[in-house]
C-alpha cells in the first residue's frame, strides 16, 4: 500500500513537472503571437508596429514601477476590453473575443514574470 502511494505521488509529481513548463511555454507562445507585434518579443514596448507615427507607446512590461500601479484585475480588464475600457488608448486592442480565459490568465502571470512585480493588491 505504502509502495503504491509512493508510486502514485511520484507519478503525480512527474505529471505536474511536465504540465507546468508546458503551460508556461504555451503562454509565451501566445504572448509572442498576439502581443509582441506591439509590445515586443521581450515585452519592452518595441514591437514592429511601433514606428514614429505610432500615437502612444505600448506599455513596457519590464518597467516594474509602472506595472506595479496595476492590479491583476486591471490587467485582465484591459486585455479583455482594450485600452478605452480603462481610459487608455484604443491602440491597445480588446482581446476578449480572441483569447480563452486560460490564455488571459496565463498572460497575466507572464506579465508578472516580465515585470518581476506583484502589482497593486486588491
Amino acid at each position: 500500500m505504502k509502495k503504491l502511494m509512493t508510486i502514485a505521488t511520484f507519478a503525480a509529481f512527474v505529471f505536474l513537472l511536465t504540465l507546468a513548463p508546458a503551460t508556461a511555454s504555451e503562454t509565451e507562445k501566445v504572448f509572442k503571437f498576439y502581443c509582441a507585434q506591439c509590445h515586443g518579443l521581450t515585452g519592452k514596448g518595441d514591437g514592429p508596429n511601433v514606428t514614429k507615427d505610432f500615437p502612444v507607446s505600448p506599455r513596457n512590461f519590464t518597467n516594474a514601477a509602472e506595472m506595479n500601479k496595476l492590479s491583476d484585475a486591471d490587467l485582465k480588464n484591459v486585455i479583455l476590453d482594450g485600452g478605452p475600457s480603462v481610459s487608455k488608448s484604443p491602440m491597445m486592442p480588446p482581446w476578449g473575443k480572441t483569447l480563452t480565459a486560460e490564455q488571459v490568465d496565463g498572460l497575466i502571470r507572464h506579465l508578472r514574470t516580465l515585470c518581476q512585480c506583484e502589482g497593486k493588491q486588491g
Partner: peptide
C-alpha cells in the same frame, strides 16, 4: 484610425 486599433497593425 481612432475607435479601433486597425491602423496600429
Amino acid at each position: 484610425i481612432k475607435k479601433m486599433p486597425c491602423s496600429g497593425c
